[in-house]
Computed example of a mutant assay.
Amino acid sequence: MNQYVGKLCRAAMSSLFFFLLLDVGVSGRSASTESAAVTQTTAQPPLATRPEPWHLSVTQTPAKEKAKEGETVVLNCHFNSPQSSSLSELMVKWYKEDEKGQMTLLENNVTILPNNNRIFMSGDLSQGDASLVILNVTTGDHGIYFCAVTLPDGKVVTGNGTKLRIRRALGLFGIEESIGTIIAVVAAGIGGLVVLIIVLTPQLRRCILCMKQGSHQA
């Protein structure tokens, strides 16, 4: 009887020991799996967000503009970009080039010429409009005007320019023409007078001879 009880005890102890080993193995594998998962998750680098590049185009119209002294001139400058919500943050610069060199008229959306309220930007930047207005133009406003837009990253995009010519008043019979047209008209008049003299000279000579002959006969 004692032997039978001893066998049962040994069998129970063996079963208990087997289950303990099995539980330790399963727990060890679970812990290893969780640790590997945590390691794999933390090893992934964070995604870096890069700002999208600007693709801006600047258009100036017209390429050439004429006006008379005292008139108001609008030089159109329009720009567009996929990032339309940020257009109002752009910086606009207007400058003029002529025989005297280059002169900045407007910078950072503000007119910088001292004591000059004739020139200002009238467009709405949020709508992509950076047009320039010049009031009471004079012959000193001759030149080529450029619209330059500065992006947030510092890149500058410039339009093709608008050439402005101002016609002045002669003050004679109310005629208004540009200097080039005046010179052309005067040259044409002188040329026509020379041709007329050349054509009429032979006829004048004949008339003078006829008059002389008539006086001798009388």
Rank of each mutant, 00 (worst) to 15 (best):
A63R: 03
A67M: 00
C9T: 11
W94P: 06
L20W: 02
F17R: 15
T104D: 00
A187T: 05
T111M: 04
S126T: 07
F19H: 10
S88V: 15
P51V: 11
T61A: 09
I190C: 00
S81L: 03
E69Y: 02
A148Q: 15
I175A: 03
T111K: 02
M211I: 05
G174I: 14
V186H: 01
R10W: 02
C9Y: 10
N108L: 09
V38F: 10
G189N: 04
F19L: 07
P53N: 12
H216Q: 09
L106M: 07
L125C: 07
C207D: 13
Q213L: 13
V149W: 06
V73M: 01
G161D: 00
I197F: 05
P45F: 00
L20I: 06
V24D: 14
S14P: 09
P202V: 05
A63M: 00
T139C: 12
D124I: 09
V58T: 07
E69Q: 13
V194S: 02
M211C: 11
V149D: 05
N116P: 00
G123W: 01
R168V: 08
A43P: 05
K163W: 01
L75M: 09
Q127I: 04
G25L: 15
N80D: 13
Q203V: 14
S122E: 14
N109R: 11
E69K: 05
F173E: 12
R29N: 12
R10G: 14
L135F: 04
A11C: 13
V149S: 07
E176K: 15
K212M: 01
G214M: 08
L8N: 07
S57K: 04
L132C: 01
I198H: 07
N2L: 12
D153M: 12
K163M: 08
A188S: 07
F18V: 14
G25K: 13
A36L: 13
S57E: 06
T33R: 04
L172E: 05
N2M: 06
I166T: 06
S35P: 04
Q83R: 14
E34G: 01
L105I: 04
R165Y: 07
S122H: 01
M1E: 12
G154I: 09
P152S: 10
A169Y: 08
S215F: 07
S35N: 12
K64I: 06
A169V: 07
S57F: 10
M91A: 11
W94S: 00
V133A: 03
S35Q: 15
V92D: 02
